[in-house]
């Protein structure tokens, strides 16, 4: 299949990109790696009138660490995250995205602004309490990942804003687990659970759990976190907490997974992710 016609521009600076987006109006779209957008355009499920390609805009790719914060450029491809194991759960999740070819082109920024609740990185960003830096005509602002995803494939970015960077606290010493369930390894998650745990002497000081594809937006699992915070981390406490993984969720059903089955998977995967994060399994 082939995309519908569109106009194209590849500005050399962020300012020009923002201005092109603005002039292009509602049907203008940013193009990064294109691995969320182009498949939709090829199936004619999306038909933007203008593509503003970021490939010539300098300084948007790369991973850097400083002052307790990871800074990840929006155009950093998944493969770079995958091969940066220091990123912990982000690296583990990135390694499960589609396939190597897709990971070589797809970018973290593109994935986040696409806002697909079945994509791996959005819920992981929520679990890591990351934030994104966005640049618009009137300047820069920061949006916490927890506030980024507003509805099904809908984010808090305005039409003329560009996500430039992801900032994430360094979680040194935290354990993590990423459990993704799919039928084939190249598939989207039927359900995935990301967990990061900060433990001291076997006690859970802090814990955050992200849920992928358990609703119209990526989610956290607050009931699990509350149940575990301050508790001794063992198989029993984790299992008990994980039982609440699906609390308050309304997962979309499809041919291969009913809502009930997805809730069940969330509980199982949550337990497994927490066990990994707590160092109880490998």
């Amino acid at each position: 299949m082939i995309p519908a016609e569109f106009d194209y521009t590849a500005p050399a600076s962020l300012e020009e990109a923002i201005s092109a987006l603005r002039q292009g109006g509602e049907d203008a779209k940013l193009l990064a790696g294109g691995h969320s957008l182009l498949p939709l355009m090829k199936l004619r499920l999306a038909a933007p009138s203008l593509l503003v390609d970021l490939r010539r805009v300098p300084g948007l790719a790369g991973v850097a660490r400083g002052n307790g914060t990871w800074r990840i450029g929006a155009l950093t491809p998944h493969a770079v995250l995958e091969h940066t194991p220091e990123l912990g759960v982000v690296s583990a999740a990135a390694a499960t995205i589609a396939d190597p070819q897709v990971r070589n082109r797809g970018t973290i920024g593109g994935s986040l602004v696409h806002g697909d609740p079945a994509s791996d990185l959005p819920a992981v960003m929520m679990a890591c309490e990351a934030s994104v830096t966005v640049q618009g005509p009137s300047g820069q602002r920061t949006i916490p990942a927890l506030e980024l995803f507003q509805g099904y494939m809908e984010t808090a970015l305005a039409a003329d804003e560009v996500l430039t960077e992801v900032r994430m606290p360094v979680l040194d010493g935290w354990g993590f687990g990423y459990e993704k369930f799919n039928r084939r390894s190249e598939d989207w998650a039927m359900v995935a659970v990301s967990a990061v745990v900060n433990a001291r002497d076997g006690t859970c000081e802090d814990v955050r759990v992200g849920l992928t594809n358990m609703g119209s937006v990526p989610l956290r699992a607050p009931a699990v976190e509350e149940a575990l915070r301050g508790k001794q981390l063992d198989a029993e406490s984790i299992a008990a907490a994980a039982e609440q993984a699906a609390e308050g969720t309304d997962p979309p059903a499809d041919l291969n997974a009913s809502a009930e089955y997805k809730r069940h998977l969330a509980r199982v995967l949550c337990r497994r992710a927490l066990e990994k994060a707590a160092g109880l399994s490998s």
Partner: peptide, 28 residues
């Protein structure tokens, strides 16, 4: 284990791409 051509009750083909028609890969 994987493959299935499925139509819903209205006769719409539900598994009409390689996303939904799950051909196993080497990894499986």
């Amino acid at each position: 284990l994987y493959e299935r051509i499925h139509y819903d009750e209205s006769g719409q083909l539900v598994t009409g791409t390689f996303v939904d028609y799950a051909l196993a890969t080497a990894a499986e």
